[in-house]
Design a protein around this nucleic acid. Structure first.
Lengths: 203, 203
DNA sequence: TCCTTTTGTTATACTGTGTAACAATGTTTG
DNA sequence: CAAACATTGTTACACAGTATAACAAAAGGA
């Protein structure tokens, strides 16, 4: 296994090989079920020797995580900056921007949602989104106790993912603008309202 | 492949074999990851010849679906009868009953949620729950257009599943009574409210 | 009991995983 | 540029799991 992050300069051959493997996996996921993809297939498409795969990764899951990490970091920072602007007028715009972003990177999201078959991936994505909302969504952190906040942020994260999934399955209709309204009303406003009413009854 | 449903009377040997295979799979899922379970393992635990599996099923997925179908039909009818009583006073009770039901059959639900790694299973469950709510949840079918209703029922189904999953991961705390409140407030009331406000802006 | 169906046993072809040894190629450093 | 080093390619192999076939044994229904 070649060193990866210890020295600052990575061997260009290593860089190249890993890129080829990632690209090969991505192109395969876009037209096959992830579960049916084999290491042999990936290395053949990458035009790399079979054993070379094992010199960089242990499993296909690991390679998949690396692929998703690239894309997820981008999505996360995107949502994070949006989630910080929590005044009511900006919320609808926030929703619209999320769905416009997805429209741009539809391929990546199809991969992400297809890969949810790998449970680990799903959990990781949900947790990351939940943490972002828990930290940066102002109305949440003021209301309710810890349990309520945990439930609520988990609810937002899973709902957002489910809404994105639904939208992709419906060929990205309706428009991002309308999905922005849905996002604001169905996910954010609803959850904030529910947390408020739950904290009144003092769970 | 022995006949299954054509004649009313199924050969007792067939019935026995299938039950043994289902039970074996269930007991394996409860202590292993589904993805790592092999047909050989299942047949050995069922004390049945390896080839006998193929005389009844084509894949492990298929056997899993049969296992889940048993449990799901039960859950579905349970939720369905509950969803019909949709007056506000009954909703909290409805929620409590759902989570008490899950508490009773915790094993089945752990299997169900573990098996969500099989994407087909997840989709099927979500669709079934969504259809139930779409049909029987009175406030939904009166408000909003078709798209909004689709989104809303999908939202309820995925949120309910996510909430159940969260609860199981947290060792079924808090109590079913409190989860009932969360269910009513966070999922049902919120969604109905959102659909109402979305239909006013006339999507 | 006789006939049919199901199950068990054994053997086999095939695919994919994971490792090993050594040769060939590319990269860096003196 | 050449030597030293790291990575990649080739070939071979052991292994596990899938899927099927042929025939014998056991169980069920008429």
């Amino acid at each position: 296994m070649p060193r990866k992050s210890s020295p600052v300069n990575i061997d260009p051959r290593v860089k190249r090989t890993r890129r080829l493997l990632r690209d090969a996996l991505v192109s395969l996921i876009l037209k096959k079920d992830f579960a049916s993809i084999t290491i042999k297939e990936v290395t053949e498409r990458a035009e790399v020797a079979y054993i070379t795969f094992y010199r960089h990764y242990e499993t296909l899951d690991q390679l998949l995580m690396e692929v998703l990490d690239e894309g997820l970091v981008e999505l996360m920072t995107h949502i994070e900056t949006l989630a910080k602007q929590s005044d009511a007028s900006a919320l609808e715009t926030e929703g619209r921007l999320i769905f416009e972003y997805i429209l741009q990177k539809a391929d990546l999201f199809r991969i992400l949602l297809k890969s949810q078959s790998v449970t680990r991936v799903r959990r990781k994505v949900v947790r990351n989104i939940a943490i972002i909302f828990q930290k940066s969504c102002v109305p949440l952190e003021r209301l309710g106790n810890q349990v309520t906040i945990n439930i609520a942020s988990n609810h937002i994260a899973t709902s957002l993912l489910a809404l994105i999934e639904w939208w992709l399955e419906n060929n990205m209709n309706p428009s991002p603008t309308e999905m922005g309204k849905v996002y604001k009303s169905l996910i954010i406003d609803s959850t904030v309202g529910a947390v408020r009413s739950l904290s009144i009854v003092s769970m």
